[in-house]
Structures are given as structure tokens and as C-alpha cells.
């Protein structure tokens, strides 16, 4: 993972419309570094899930709380740390959404997609901050 001093930082309100604007800006930067389409797709999906988790589940849409985003985009890699002001959670406690008895439950599927689409995903011990990394596969 990159040294945190090399990451750019932005503070987002607990508002999915603001999160969308940020995602659009990231998408634009991925085009500028000529990130492969497949990798940009993976990042877009994982980022959506992680930001919704932070805003809805972490901050409970509380306008008094914000989401800290630190990120790095370069021609080889995309890295991001998303930290909310919620109490955190234990990702190991999230039920497996692919178990037949959980298939109709809403939880866990976003986390599963994040894990699948990124090369690395690590939560801090409190569970209110997730660090994700995508290494671009260039042919």
C-alpha cells in the first residue's frame, strides 16, 4: 500500500449525491490515466458499494458526520481509503450472502463484490475504515 502522505484527501458529507459527484470525478481521472475498461468497471462498482456502506451503514446518513476519502490514482494502480464516523463493524460477522438461507437477505452482497473486484481490501480494527487497491492489468 502507498504511504498515506502520497494520498490525496477529500471530505465528503453523508450524502449519496455528493458521493456520486466524487465517483464521476474518479471515473474521469481513470480515463485520463488510460485505466483498462475492465479495471475501471471494477473500481466503479467497489467504490459505489464502499461509499454507500460508509454513508448509510456507517454514518447512518447523519448530516453531522462526514466520510474521509484518501486516494491515489496513477498509471499502474488505484488505491483508496474510505473512513466513516460510525461505530465500525466486524467484516467477519457479515453472513455469507451466497448461503441458500441468506440469499434473500440484503446484507453482505456489497462487501462480497468489493472483495471480488479489488486486488486488496483491508478493514481497520474498528471496522470503520476500508482500504482498497486495484492494480491495472494492461495487455
Amino acid at each position: 500500500m502507498a504511504d498515506s502522505s502520497s494520498l490525496r484527501e477529500i471530505i465528503l458529507p453523508s450524502d449519496t449525491i455528493e458521493a456520486r459527484k466524487f465517483q464521476d470525478a474518479i471515473e474521469q481521472e481513470l480515463i485520463e490515466v488510460d485505466a483498462p475498461d475492465k479495471d475501471a468497471f471494477c473500481i466503479r462498482l467497489a467504490l459505489e458499494e464502499a461509499l454507500v456502506n460508509a454513508i448509510k451503514h456507517g454514518n447512518q446518513m447523519d448530516p453531522a458526520k462526514s466520510v474521509k476519502v484518501q486516494f491515489l490514482i496513477c498509471p499502474e494502480v488505484f488505491e483508496i481509503v474510505i473512513t466513516d464516523e460510525g461505530p465500525g463493524f466486524d467484516p467477519e460477522d457479515v453472513p455469507d450472502p451466497t448461503d441458500i438461507e441468506n440469499l434473500e437477505r440484503p446484507c453482505g452482497r456489497g462487501l462480497m463484490l468489493m472483495r471480488h473486484y479489488m486486488n486488496e481490501i483491508v478493514y481497520n480494527s474498528l471496522g470503520n475504515s476500508v482500504r482498497m487497491k486495484k492494480i491495472f492489468k494492461r495487455s
Partner: peptide, 17 residues
Amino acid sequence: VDYLSSAALGKLITLNK
């Protein structure tokens, strides 16, 4: 459709039910 999130999957599950 080019992108679909887990929240959208949840709606499809409810619709199927």
C-alpha cells in the same frame, strides 16, 4: 445496463419473490 449495484440486486430479489 452497464452497471448494477448490490442495492439493485436486492430490488430484483424482492421482485422475484
